[in-house]
Amino acid sequence: MAESETETPRTSDYELAQRAAEGDRTAFEELYQRHNRRVYSLCLRMTQNVTEAEDLAQEVFIQLFRKIGSFRGESAFTTWLHRLTVNQVLMHFRKRGVRLEQTTEEGEVPVQIVKGTENPNAMPVVDRIALDKAIGQLPPGYRSVFTLHDIEGHEHEEIARMLGVSVGTSKSQLHKARMKLRGLLRQQNKPK
C-alpha cells in the first residue's frame, strides 16, 4: 500500500502489549480490535458452536490480560496468542470430558475405503458453507487436528505436542478427518 509510507507506522503488537501490561486499557482494547476475529474464528472452528466460541474467546482475552506482562516479544504476538487460544479450547474440551486421542465416536461410521464402482455421488466444488457443515460433523479429535493442520497450517509435530498425542496419531487422524470430510461433502451433494 503506497499511502502507508506517508502515514505514521502502526504501533506494533509488542508495543501495545507492553503498554497494556503497564495498565493501559486503550492499548489492550486495540489488541482486542486487531485480533478478536482470529481468536474467535479458531474457537468457532474447533467447537463449531457460536456460544461456546464466544465464551472461549472471552476467556482467551481475560487470560491474555492476565499474562500479557509475560509476553517478551521473542515470538510473534499472533503466534503467542494463537497458542493461548488453542490451550484454552483444549482445556475446554478436557473439562467436558472430550478425549482428543479417540479415533471414533460411539455410533460413528468408520471411514470407508473406496472400492471399485460404489455409489458415485459427485464431489461438489468445495465451498465454505459445505465445508463448515461437514467439519461440524467430525468428532472433536479429528476436527482439532484438521483445523490445526489444514486450516491453521501447523505441522504434525506441533499438533502432537499441543494435543498430547503422538505424531503418528496426528497424521492418521488428519487422514481420517479428510476422508470423512470427503464422504460428508459427497453426501451433501446427493441428489434428492
Binding site: M123, V125, V126, D127, L131, D150, I151, R178, M179, L181, R182, L185, R186
Partner: peptide
Amino acid sequence: DLDAIVTYC
C-alpha cells in the same frame, strides 16, 4: 477430492 479439500483450506 482430498486435494480439493486441502487446497481450499
